[in-house]
Write a protein that binds this DNA or RNA. Structure first.
Lengths: 128, 128
DNA sequence: AACGTCTATCGTCGATACACGATAGATAAT
DNA sequence: ATTATCTATCGTGTATCGACGATAGACGTT
């Protein structure tokens, strides 16, 4: 088994958004996906992504992960005036929209931005 | 009184998003706001805008208005498999997020994209 | 004035979101 | 093996969403 186990949005019967084919590549490599080299999201994906961002706390969480490149759940809990379970729930929603990706690193989970989906979101919004 | 009365999102105690100073200009002029000449949305505005778009029906309504430049409520109702009151409710949500603007034209209401806020949204998303 | 048309709002209902505490599972340390 | 730590999930309660039909207000027409 690999030392770090990638956690994607495969639970809860939600696989609407295509996940990056993780396992073969480092999930948090942040290769700075160019906007015009990704396909835009289809409407259900776009709705899910914008819905996931449609909450001030989740926008803040997303920004925190983005500026730190990678982030542990506990760090986010420390930054936010919310219970650990609440933060974990917000992370789940961002994860199921494929906006972020989590890697289980020993006892903790490290999150990073899914650059490919973010680029696709940017392109989709620009095309509105 | 002016022949066309602009309807903005001033009701329901919601004026979080700054409205274009309508009345002095044609609301649906679509001057193609350049993205880098508008201020990005602040986080509550961004959350409200993305939340408003976070629904497949509202994305569809937004696209319909955008491609027709201007659109009557009844046209949208005719295009969608939803009750008139439901469509009107979706329009209210888009309106309160300032993504669209409505003008009362006699007995009907004509909607158009709020280009300034759309440009600000695009910029805000690009900066993520 | 009375009527028909168009659309926003109201009231209702079930489903979903959002917060929390409690619990459980995995891992590292003792 | 036991313990401690970290985080996801479960169960709960409240609030908001998303749909609808019914209603009301504004306007044009007769």
């Amino acid at each position: 088994m690999s030392p770090t186990n990638s956690i994607t949005s495969a639970q809860a019967g939600n696989e609407a958004l295509p996940a990056t084919k993780a396992g073969t590549q480092d999930v948090c490599a942040t290769p700075e996906d160019p906007i015009d080299k990704v396909d835009p999201l289809d409407d259900p994906e776009l709705a899910q992504a914008t819905k996931a961002l449609g909450n001030p706390t989740r926008i803040k969480i997303f920004r925190l992960i983005a500026e730190r490149q990678t982030c542990i759940t506990g760090e986010l809990v420390a930054e936010l005036p919310l219970a650990q379970s609440t933060v974990s729930e917000h992370l789940r929603i961002l994860r199921e929209a494929n906006l972020i990706q989590g890697e289980i690193e020993g006892p903790r989970t490290s999150y990073c931005i899914n650059q490919r989906v973010l680029a696709a979101l940017k392109r989709s919004i620009l095309e509105l």
